[in-house]
Design a protein around this nucleic acid. Structure first.
Lengths: 229, 229
DNA sequence: ATGATACTGCCAAATATTGTCAGCAGTAAA
DNA sequence: TTTACTGCTGACAATATTTGGCAGTATCAT
């Protein structure tokens, strides 16, 4: 049995057992050494499997590893398809691919007759001016937002003056013609907006900013007078 | 990337492309040689995947997937959230509400920590000029598209000339500033585009148009020179 | 017919996997 | 507290698998 097959088998075994299973048991069931089981589990976790291993207990597959079947109304399907198409069309390359992937995953867990609705959806996204502000950078900025990491940027303001700043990126705003990074600016000690097409260079620092993003986001909303959702 | 990962990825790629994909394309997407793709496909089929490979065509994953799709990745969640927010912001009221509902359903099946990512997502849709072309009408048009029903409209063209026509709506295009109904026009006996903000009145007829929407859509794409997805 | 594509076999080099041994750390129960 | 289980990690060498390239065949759409 190849390793790939064994990994799938391992998931199945874990799913079968509701209660914690010891690595030794798994090793036995899979006909493989204990060390290998540890390695396999490691691989699965790396791939996104949610497996709890507790010393003295064993392994449990936490719920939420796999997508359960989903049910949507026709309007909901159309909304999801339209939204994904917009993202696929307008966002940076990795996010664009992610949108298509997400839709495919949803399609896979949909009842069969609904699956056709996805492809047949009559809602289209009109072609837009491509926003070509460095895909790689935008993806990096998204990641920094997620991880609450400081960014060092070199920014060309609207009056063409150039500054270097360290910012705490808290959000990325998608407008029709450009994208804007919302951030706390260490230079100005205030919230500032930076158009991605005017960011000449980005360096992701390893430093995490000292406050939590949701809190900052709330403060920014208050400062801008944007009602909370 | 390990082979096991690649096999999962391969399935996902096949899921993503609903139409036949050539081995060469797969090889390219996976960053691996064609020969290896053939071997991988062989392995997957051995494990029970239902993959059709036809010479001259390519590969198709038949629904009835063998592998339950794994959980959404962080990028995929962000893509879904962003897409839904765009729809919630820019589409007609019922669709907007559907987008929010769909997202809630997805959130419901997510493990807890991922659920937080939905609310905390840092991707925002910038406010756009509201497209206020009769929400009720747009919803009605969407429904007519889904049901392949004829519409009777009164249309004000760009030169302000007014006409009454019966059209077969096949798609609704979302542009940044307006929305366009793609339809077969009985008056002109050709495909025509109608901006929703210039449709003065809509009546949904009970009559179903005599041809199938996907076919018409394909013809329209060909006529417009839009490559098939 | 032609081109595109799926598919198979073979080989050598590159790469991954595996078991073993050795040790640390956490949990539950005696 | 002690003991028995258990998770987890590192190193290493033997082994197995994977990979790409090449050559060739078959099948389908046009």
């Amino acid at each position: 049995m190849s390793r790939a097959q064994r990994l799938l088998e391992l998931i199945q075994v874990l799913r079968r057992h509701r209660h914690p299973v010891s690595g030794a048991t798994l090793a036995d069931e899979l006909g493989v050494s204990l060390r290998t089981v540890y390695r396999d589990i490691g691989t699965l976790i790396e791939q996104g499997a949610r497996i709890d291993g507790e010393p003295g207990i064993g392994y449990v597959l936490r719920p939420g590893f796999m997508l359960p079947p989903l049910m949507f109304s026709e309007d909901e399907i159309e909304a999801l398809v339209l939204g994904s198409r917009w993202v696929a069309e307008r966002a940076d390359a990795p996010l664009s691919k992610a949108a298509t992937n997400a839709l495919a995953k949803i399609a896979a867990v949909l009842p069969e007759d609904m699956r056709d609705n996805i492809e047949a959806s009559g809602l289209l996204i009109g072609p837009g001016e491509p926003i070509s502000a460095g895909d790689a950078d935008v993806a990096a900025i998204r990641l920094a937002i997620r991880k609450e990491q400081k960014l060092r940027i070199s920014y060309v303001a609207l009056d063409d003056s150039k500054t270097r700043r360290v910012i705490w990126p808290i959000a990325l705003g998608f407008f029709d013609r450009y994208r804007v990074v919302v951030a706390w600016c260490e230079l100005r000690q205030a919230f500032r907006h930076f158009r991605t097409d005017r960011i000449a260079a980005v360096t992701v620092t390893a430093k995490r900013y000292p406050r939590r993003r949701p809190v900052l986001l709330k403060e920014w909303r208050a400062a801008e007078g944007i009602p909370q959702r």
